[in-house]
Simulated scan of single mutants.
Amino acid sequence: MKTTVPRTGTRRRQRGIATLEFALILLFGLLPLLLVMYSGVMIMAVQQTLSAASAEGARAAFRHATPTERRTAACLAARRSMQWLLTYAKQTPSCTTPGAAPINVSAPAPCADLPSAQCISVQVSYDYRTHPFLPGTGRVYGWVMRTPLRSTAVSQLDLGGN
């Protein structure tokens, strides 16, 4: 009578191949997907921060008296709201000249829809291509985001009795 020997060695080698395939799929499939999702979430956080910063700047411009005070207050409020972005990008915008990027505060001018009133526009921006959160994603997202991320808010000024 002939006895058969179980082939446990072949099964054990197949188990090793499955582990190797899982590791490769994780490394080349799942990890890049998670990194792209992370950078996408961070881009959304940047856009939300920019929206809040421009709105805070517009609110601050509403509260002060002279045009220079209004522009400086708007710039300072926007800078406070987006401080984490400025720190990450190693930018220190000066609010003594509030017309330069990444925080641009316009001089009081007639409003677009109501020329008899004065408005101040606060525009903030962040260039993701220059300062990506994950190295290399600036180029990956470059074909989608050709210009810096921006947000603009406009405040109609209370001129006190005019």
Score class of each variant (00 low, 15 high):
residue 3 T to Y: 01
residue 8 T to Q: 07
residue 9 G to E: 11
residue 11 R to S: 07
residue 12 R to N: 03
residue 13 R to L: 15
residue 14 Q to S: 14
residue 14 Q to F: 14
residue 19 T to Y: 06
residue 23 A to K: 02
residue 24 L to A: 14
residue 26 L to P: 00
residue 28 F to Y: 09
residue 31 L to W: 03
residue 31 L to Q: 05
residue 40 G to F: 09
residue 40 G to D: 02
residue 41 V to C: 08
residue 41 V to N: 04
residue 42 M to P: 00
residue 44 M to W: 08
residue 45 A to E: 04
residue 47 Q to S: 12
residue 57 G to T: 09
residue 59 R to T: 01
residue 60 A to P: 01
residue 60 A to W: 02
residue 63 R to G: 01
residue 64 H to T: 13
residue 64 H to I: 01
residue 68 T to S: 11
residue 71 R to H: 06
residue 73 A to Y: 01
residue 75 C to N: 06
residue 84 W to P: 00
residue 91 Q to F: 04
residue 95 C to M: 06
residue 96 T to M: 03
residue 100 A to R: 11
residue 104 N to G: 00
residue 106 S to N: 07
residue 106 S to T: 15
residue 115 P to Q: 12
residue 115 P to C: 11
residue 116 S to N: 11
residue 119 C to R: 10
residue 121 S to V: 13
residue 121 S to T: 15
residue 122 V to N: 10
residue 122 V to L: 10
residue 125 S to Y: 01
residue 128 Y to F: 14
residue 131 H to P: 00
residue 131 H to T: 08
residue 133 F to S: 02
residue 136 G to K: 06
residue 136 G to N: 06
residue 137 T to H: 07
residue 140 V to H: 01
residue 142 G to N: 08
residue 146 R to N: 11
residue 153 A to R: 09
residue 154 V to G: 03
residue 155 S to K: 03
